[in-house]
Nucleic acid binder design. Structure first.
Ligand SMILES: Nc1nc2c(ncn2[C@H]2C[C@H](O)[C@@H](COP(=O)(O)OP(=O)(O)OP(=O)(O)O)O2)c(=O)[nH]1
Ligand SMILES: [Mg+2]
Ligand SMILES: [Zn+2]
Length: 664
DNA sequence: CAGTCGATTCAGGTAAC
DNA sequence: ATGACGTTACCTGAATCGACTG
């Protein structure tokens, strides 16, 4: 630049180019685009409201006065929660859950909040983190017995017992989870509350959050989509092809590498809702925007992504999940309230190690155990783990849940330790909580134990000072190595919540098979090929083999199709069949249980029939029979491809092409 | 009636919990 | 057969269909 300004003369050029620019730079004051403080929402009286709500429920369950363990735990938690300003978060979450339940949609527990008894006592989670215990539900008795921390992995595994005071059968609960996993030792962790809502209900509850805090104070967190490896490679390859360049493949890779990481689009966070307190404006924190491809969907997102504004304002994670949808539907069909299902049912437990309870042989379903279609337990990886570990208790399922999520947790890590007999299955690291508990047991300072746990669960490995401290306290080498390998790890609370739900679904699978498959396929209707599956065992088996033969060439679509087919195979082996789609009787999107051995698929289950088409048919058939294919197409506005699909499947019987009347 | 344009659907890719 | 974290939802671009236009 000095060169450019040479015409001013050396001295003046230096002043203009170097000195003055610096002066201008110095005049600009430093300021942060996003302030570095926290702005929690304030709701008058939420501290006392939370305290009272928790005490009330605790007393209702455990009696008044509360047992010492309960009171101590609750007080310790509430003091930490309230002094760190998180009471509002609990109160809001509680309101959301209440609203959803009132509207008939069960809420699934999720995340680290299950580590908080206050959360259990304010209905935010159904996970009870107290140590294993018995409690008598008799109002006039309320006998309770608590085991020590560490004695039982889960209270539901306790042997059945009658109340020594009144004789009533005791309830068993308590999953033995430390509170600090959620909030840390000094409240310095930024926790969020995660909740699983039914996918179809998620928009409603997002709107409700806005009602609670007022318009202009609630926004969906935005995300930033970038050009990642595959897209970058696609760009580079297309560029080379379109320009007829003859370059080595290394050059294509080099070009691709240059494109990766470039911001491409904005997106919506799966469930993150950011709350702006009433004494602030959004613009104090972040610009806002519509989603990239739709200004009319009613959603406004933050322009900055969650990560860059986290820690400053409150975030609720209101996620959509299929399990609440499934439970809702299966309760409607069977009339059985899922929360009443015993979590120690022997038959249900047995499907995690055998097919017997399903009434089929391993050969028939091509799988030695019965966990297909059970969320997070049905993939071939987890099935193999179940075969290797043969769980018989709830607590073991929880450990398996922990071990089966995250890279280098089981394979290349815990599994080797068990196989090489370095440690037993019960001693390997299966959840975050294991790490903190063990390090505390070994005598590490609490803060350090917590920090190590947080680093390991995020896959950050161990810093030298951590290893030094661990060595000082005689933490064995295998433990240090194991921590170093872990890339991600569940909190126990999350594993417990998910196992509870999976176990309930397993119960339905054993005892209400038709309802189970109907609900399962309803959530997978998009990947369900009714035309193929009505063909029965033979056509299912054939397609499964075809996909297997594809090997590594199988696309993502083939893989999802395979999962559905495996379940369909099992369903047929259990003597339940699918009948053809019926344009008058089939629902648009739901599978209908006709009787114990027959399921009627929805119209959407035909490949090529979209949701709109299916809904239109369902609506229009109320206005009378379709007299011809032409009539069907005109009245429902479906395309001729859809009509053909229906016709080929046999859903239109002998319906004529044109209206008969038009012939005259 | 060919060509254009908007709407709709689907698969692949990405982000996030 | 292998090796394998599982699940959900959004965004883009290509493919397809059907309506409109000149
Ligand atoms: N399988 C799997 N589940 C995940 C993953 N990330 C998050 N989850 C599930 C388990 C978490 O407990 C739950 C909520 O995620 P969060 O990001 O809120 O983390 P979590 O609640 O565990 O900890 P937190 O106290 O919020 O920092 O979602 C993942 O990479 N794989
Ligand atoms: Mg969380
Ligand atoms: Zn009693």
């Amino acid at each position: 630049m000095l060169e450019e300004f040479k015409y001013l003369g050396e001295e003046l050029a230096y002043e203009v180019v170097v000195e003055n620019t610096n002066k201008v730079a110095d005049m600009v004051e430093d300021f942060l685009p996003i302030p570095n403080e926290t702005f929690p929402p304030v709701i008058e009286g939420s501290d006392t409201e939370l305290r009272e709500m928790c005490y009330n429920k605790a007393k209702r369950i455990y009696g008044d006065p509360m047992p010492e363990v309960v009171k101590k735990r609750l007080d310790r938690e509430l003091n930490s929660i309230i002094s760190n300003g998180y009471a509002v978060m609990y109160i809001i979450a509680q309101k959301l859950v209440t609203k959803s339940l009132a509207d008939g949609y069960l809420v699934g527990s999720r995340g680290s909040v299950g580590s908080s008894l206050a959360a259990t006592m304010s209905d935010i989670t159904e996970v009870n983190p107290l140590p294993a215990h018995y409690i008598c539900e008799n109002e006039d008795c309320k006998y309770s017995y608590f085991y020590a921390v560490g004695e039982w992995g889960s209270g539901v595994d306790l042997p059945d017992k009658d109340c020594p005071k009144c004789g009533r059968k005791l309830k068993k609960d308590g999953h033995d989870i430390p509170f600090e996993v959620f909030l840390g030792f000094e409240g310095d962790k930024e926790p969020d509350i995660d909740l699983n809502f039914s996918g179809s209900y998620q928009p409603v509850i997002h709107k409700y959050t806005e009602e609670l805090f007022g318009e202009g104070h609630v926004y969906r967190a935005g995300t930033i989509g970038t050009v990642a490896d595959k897209t970058a490679y696609g760009y580079a390859k297309k560029y080379v092809e379109e320009n007829d360049l003859d370059v080595p493949s290394a050059e294509v890779l080099r070009l691709a590498k240059g494109c990766t990481g470039v911001k491409r689009t904005s997106g919506q966070h799966p469930g993150g809702v950011m709350v702006i307190p009433n004494y602030k404006e959004v613009y104090d924190i972040t610009p806002i925007q519509y989603p990239a491809n739709d200004v009319n969907c009613g959603v406004i997102t933050t322009h900055f992504d969650y990560h860059s504004i986290s820690g400053r304002i409150l975030k609720l994670d209101i996620l959509g999940h299929d399990v609440p949808t499934i439970i809702r539907m299966i309760e409607d069909i069977t009339g059985l309230d899922a929360t009443t299902i015993p979590l120690d049912d022997k038959e249900t437990m047995s499907i995690f190690t055998s097919t017997e309870a399903l009434g089929v042989t391993p050969e028939e379903i091509n799988c030695p155990i019965g966990s297909l279609a059970i969320p997070e337990f049905g993939t071939s990886f987890v099935r193999q783990m179940l075969l290797d570990t043969k769980p018989t208790t709830f607590a073991e399922l929880v450990r398996i849940s922990g071990l089966s999520h995250g890279t280098d947790v089981w394979l290349n890590n815990a599994q080797d330790l068990v196989v090489d007999k370095v440690v037993e299955f019960k001693d390997v690291i299966s959840t975050r909580d294991d790490i903190m508990n063990y390090l505390l047991f070994k005598g590490l300072p609490p803060k350090m134990a917590f920090t190590i746990m947080e680093n390991v669960r995020k896959g950050k490995g161990l810093k030298p000072e951590f290893i030094e401290e661990m060595n000082k306290h005689n933490v064995p080498q295998w433990y240090v190595d194991s921590c170093q390998k872990i890339k991600y790890m569940f909190p126990k609370a999350h594993a417990v919540a998910y196992v509870m739900m999976s176990f309930r679904l397993a119960y339905y699978k054993v005892h209400y098979p038709a309802a189970f498959y109907a609900t399962y396929f309803t959530t997978k209707a998009q990947d369900f090929d009714a035309d193929l599956i009505v063909g029965g065992l033979d056509s299912i088996k054939q397609k499964i083999n075809e996909i297997h033969e594809l090997g590594n060439d199988a696309t993502a679509k083939d893989k999802t199709m395979l999962t559905v087919l495996e379940v369909a195979l099992e369903m047929y082996a259990r003597k339940i069949k699918i009948i053809p789609v019926d344009i008058y009787k089939s629902d648009a999107t739901k599978f209908i249980v006709v009787d114990d051995s027959t399921i009627l698929p929805p119209m959407i289950a035909l490949q090529g029939v979209g949701e709109n088409a299916a809904i239109n048919i369902q609506k229009e058939r109320e206005n009378g029979e379709f007299i011809s294919k032409e009539d069907l197409r005109k009245r429902t506005k479906i395309s001729k491809t859809v009509v053909e699909t229906l016709s080929n499947h046999g859903s239109l019987n002998d319906m004529s092409e044109k209206n008969q009347l038009s012939l005259f």
